[in-house]
Simulated assay, not measured.
Amino acid sequence: MAETKGKGSKTAKKANAKAAKEGKKNPRTSSAAQSELGKKGAKKNKSKKK
């Protein structure tokens, strides 16, 4: 099971844990946390199939 830390949704807690692992307090400045939150890197496919 993934590490979690802080408050909020399950995804936010994972992002907080990843930010802490990178040594950053704010998940918004942590690249690992941003990818967890879908801000960078691989994103979920939102296109609709016809």
Score class of each variant (00 low, 15 high):
Met1Leu: 13
Met1Gln: 07
Met1Ser: 13
Met1Pro: 12
Met1Asp: 10
Thr4Pro: 04
Thr4Tyr: 07
Thr4Gly: 07
Lys5Asp: 02
Lys5Gly: 01
Gly6Glu: 07
Lys7Arg: 13
Lys7Ile: 13
Lys7Trp: 12
Lys7Asp: 12
Gly8Asp: 04
Gly8Glu: 02
Gly8Pro: 06
Gly8Ile: 01
Gly8Thr: 01
Ser9Gly: 02
Ser9Ala: 00
Ser9His: 02
Lys10Gly: 05
Lys10Asp: 05
Lys10Glu: 06
Lys10Gln: 07
Thr11Ser: 08
Thr11Phe: 06
Thr11Asp: 12
Thr11Ile: 04
Ala12Val: 08
Ala12Tyr: 06
Ala12Arg: 04
Ala12Ser: 08
Lys13Thr: 08
Lys13Gln: 15
Lys14Asp: 02
Lys14Val: 07
Lys14Arg: 11
Lys14Tyr: 04
Ala15Arg: 01
Ala15His: 03
Ala15Met: 02
Asn16Pro: 06
Asn16Cys: 08
Asn16Leu: 06
Asn16Gln: 08
Ala17Lys: 03
Lys18Phe: 03
Lys18Gln: 02
Ala19Met: 01
Ala19Thr: 00
Ala19Asp: 00
Ala20Met: 04
Lys21Ala: 15
Gly23Lys: 03
Gly23Met: 05
Lys24Asn: 02
Lys24Ser: 02
Lys25Trp: 00
Lys25Cys: 01
Asn26Ile: 05
Pro27Leu: 08
Arg28Leu: 15
Arg28Thr: 09
Thr29His: 11
Ser30Cys: 09
Ser30Asp: 01
Ser30Ile: 00
Ala32Asn: 11
Ala32Tyr: 11
Ala32Gly: 11
Ala32Thr: 10
Ala33Pro: 07
Gln34Arg: 15
Gln34His: 10
Gln34Val: 10
Ser35Trp: 12
Ser35Gln: 14
Ser35Ile: 13
Glu36His: 05
Glu36Asp: 04
Glu36Pro: 05
Leu37Glu: 06
Leu37Ile: 04
Gly38Ala: 04
Lys39Val: 12
Lys39Arg: 12
Lys39Glu: 07
Lys40Pro: 11
Gly41Ser: 08
Gly41Pro: 12
Gly41Asp: 11
Gly41Leu: 11
Lys43Gly: 14
Lys43Val: 14
Lys44Arg: 11
Lys44Val: 12
Lys44Cys: 10
Lys44Thr: 15
Lys46Gln: 11
Ser47His: 15
Lys48Pro: 12
Lys48Ile: 14
Lys50Pro: 13
Lys50Ile: 10
